[in-house]
Structure formats: C-alpha cells, structure tokens
C-alpha cells in the first residue's frame, strides 16, 4: 500500500496530515466530552491508501473481531469531501441510549425500541463525525457541510459494507481511528474515505499549513 501512498501524497505530506489529524482528534475528544458529558478516548489516527475496490475487504478486516455491527454513514462536503463511516460493535446503540439521557422517550409505538436504538446511534454518530471532520477541516482552513447521517443497525459484519458502494477507479485516503466511551463501554472505528478529487486541494492545504512554520 505504501507504493500507492507516495503516488498520491509525498511522505512529507503524509507526515503533515498525520500531525494535523493528531491535533484535530485530540481537540475533538475534548469537544465531545463537553457535549456528551463523558470522556471519549480516540486512538492515534492513522492514514492508509486503499484502492476503492479493496475497501470492502479492508473494512471487513478491521471489524472482524465483531460479528455484528452497526454503521452510521455520513457524507461531508467541502473542498475536503468524502464519506465518513462509523462502525460500532453490536449492542452499542443500547449502551449509548443510557449515555445520552434524552428526555423524550415516552409515547413510542410498536417497534420503538429499534427506532430509539438507531436514532441514538445516529445522534452519537453525527456528533462524533462532526467533531472529527469539522476540526480536521478547520485546521486545513476549510468549512464542510454534512448530509443527514444514515444508519444500518445490527448487520452481519461480513456483508455490511457493499462492495459496489464506491467509484471503482478511485483510491481512497483512509483516516482511521478507534474510539471508546469511558462510560457505557461502546467501541468502534471511524473511517474517513476521502474522495480522490480532494487530493489536489489537500496537497495545497497541507502546504499552506506548513508555510505558517517557515
């Protein structure tokens, strides 16, 4: 994979992106704990370059310790654009319901337990993705907007990410972190699958970021 990497970004550029992500995710974790009242631990993020056709297998390899998963997907849209995939281990929705302490849980009808679970995943996913992507974009001097998140609950990990989801000619820059909540024990991964068309802009933005330090 490293051969592909240097085709897209130089090793200096990868180092810079890595450093910016460390900063962004460090700040996100702190913002998150303020918004959802619990300490969120984000691991040191890492960058990989994966052919879009292999993305399916790649993601599966990273979630194989979970038999069932829930996925929140959200597109981010700025000069920096792509797909955020947040993958939770099975049961995370139920753990997170307690964490959010929402007050509007009366008047729910048949099938409502599932709705509450998926809506909770959506909300936490939206906040988590927003915090990470937003900070990263901010450091690169970009502003992004988001499409409403979508959720897939309790799917078999082996067929949860459809192989034909992404444009086959592209190479995705994958920014991956794993996270866990200090209370509630929900864990998972965040993948940012950045679109190839953002690469030109990304190179320039990284350059500009470094110029502050010359």
């Amino acid at each position: 994979m490293s051969e592909q990497a240097t085709d897209i970004l130089s090793s200096d550029e990868v180092d810079t992106l890595q450093e910016i992500m460390n900063i962004a995710f460090g700040q996100s974790a702190s913002d998150l704990s303020e918004v959802i009242d619990t300490h969120v631990v984000l691991s040191i993020p890492f960058i990989e370059f994966v052919k879009v056709t292999e993305l399916h297998t790649y993601i599966q390899q990273h979630v194989k310790e979970y038999s069932k998963i829930s996925i929140v997907e959200q597109k981010y849209w700025g000069k920096f654009k792509g797909d955020a995939l947040l993958i939770f281990a099975s049961g995370a929705g139920r753990e997170l319901i307690l964490l959010l302490k929402n007050d509007e849980q009366g008047s729910l009808e048949a099938g409502s337990a599932e709705i509450l679970e998926s809506e909770t995943l959506l909300e936490v996913g939206n906040i988590l993705i927003g915090a990470c992507v937003g900070k990263l974009a901010e450091l690169l001097n970009d502003i992004v907007t988001y499409t409403p998140p979508m959720v897939l609950v309790e799917e078999d990990a082996r067929n949860a990410v459809p192989a034909n989801k992404f444009d086959p000619d592209q190479t995705a820059i994958i920014l991956k972190t794993d996270f866990n909540f200090e209370q509630g024990g929900a864990t998972g991964f965040l993948f940012l699958v950045t679109k190839n068309e953002s690469v030109v802009w990304l190179k320039k933005a990284l350059q500009l970021f470094l110029e502050q330090y010359e």
């Binding site: 996100s28 913002d31 303020e34 918004v35 959802i36 959010l100 302490k101 929402n102 007050d103 509007e104 709705i115 509450l116 809506e119 959506l122 909300e123 939206n126 906040i127 927003g130 915090a131 937003g134 900070k135 901010e138 502003i143 907007t145 988001y146 409403p148 998140p149």
Partner: peptide
C-alpha cells in the same frame, strides 16, 4: 430539553450539523 441544547452546543462549539428525525422526535 437535553437533546436540543446538546445539538445547539455541538453547532456552536464545533460547527456541527444536527438532525431531528420525525421518527423519534
């Protein structure tokens, strides 16, 4: 309520977007 205030906070503090679906709310 909690959810509304939390959503506002995430918008103001890190420029997030928030969504209130009909299904739950």
């Amino acid at each position: 309520n909690t959810k509304f205030r939390r959503s506002c906070k995430s918008v103001f503090s890190f420029g997030n977007f928030s969504f209130f679906s009909q299904k739950l709310h």
